[in-house]
Design a protein around this nucleic acid. Structure first.
Lengths: 160, 160
DNA sequence: ATCCAGTGTAATTGTTGCAGTTACATTGAT
DNA sequence: ATCAATGTAACTGCAACAATTACACTGGAT
């Protein structure tokens, strides 16, 4: 475990909204999303807050139709967009205790590593940029083994 | 913070051994390494244990000259080798609580994500394979701003 | 055979960050 | 005014990491 599960949940949230709202212009509640992810609505809302700051979703406060929707098309939201919105620590940790300054390695290794680590993080992000929420939606439905027909029926039922 | 600091320390250890032993065929103790990293010898030995299992270092028990040395040339140890030896968790976490199976997304997202995550981890590892301990040694010494002359003098002094 | 400088490892502790829960103030369509 | 929703703070539980202590084990040097 390295990159926080919150990132996985963020992808789940966006994909679920994409499926649930289809093309329609409506908002869905954190409660319904939490039901699919199987966790607490508060955790979901904390993540949605970050996604909102990243301009990936829009929020509607108050009233009966309150909730969330995507700010763009699923095909226009990449895994990298989600990463930037939700993960806020560098990929690699440096030392916890600062190395011995009287040693050439101890003195020079942190700036040296920072450069190498930065290259690696960049390579990872380039890969993340290649996949979108639309891809994940497609692949998830395929993997679920559901028929599109059943899916639509069940969605209608869930809408409360 | 995502990838454990133990990985950074592992790179530090190998680079320090490379510098300290130069071309010479000798073993260095975890105590001396711990002094450069500025942490406890036990922590260092736990990491060296993993590096030993990964065939990156060799250990000499007992006697006066006991300690560690590299199992190969610094230029033949890549960042990826070290990663495989020291990091034992996947790069991305999945959900903590298992998603709702009655939802197409909940049911299909984990296998779908596993595939995408695997691609990303692979991209990161390809980048890691491009850098070696020799590169890090070179760059660390450069960054330290030390003259090679002083370095040699000081090394001789440290040797006890 | 003994010494002793080193490794190997288990047990314990302090700290940190994440996730989960409860509680309550706030928002704003209807 | 209602009330279905969000926003957020406070607290708890838990797991992983790093740091420390303690002690058994190893094996070259003498």
């Amino acid at each position: 475990m390295a990159i926080v599960s919150r990132y996985t949940v963020a992808l789940h949230i966006l994909t679920w909204i994409a499926l649930a709202t289809g093309g329609k212009d409506e908002f869905v509640s954190s409660d319904r999303i939490a039901n699919s992810v199987n966790t607490s609505p508060v955790f979901i809302r904390r993540i949605l807050g970050k996604l909102n700051k990243g301009r990936l979703v829009k929020v509607q406060h108050g009233g009966t139709g309150a909730g969330w929707k995507l700010a763009r098309q699923p095909k226009d939201i990449t895994f990298l967009d989600v990463y930037e919105a939700v993960v806020d620590t560098p990929l690699f940790e440096l030392h916890h205790s600062t190395p011995n300054d009287n040693c050439a390695i101890g003195k020079g290794i942190q700036p040296a590593l920072s450069a190498f680590y930065s290259d690696t993080e960049k390579a990872m992000k380039q890969q993340l940029a290649k996949t979108t929420i639309a891809d994940l939606l497609q692949e998830s439905v395929t993997q679920s083994g559901w028929e599109l027909q059943d899916l639509m029926t069940r969605l209608a039922g869930n809408k409360k």
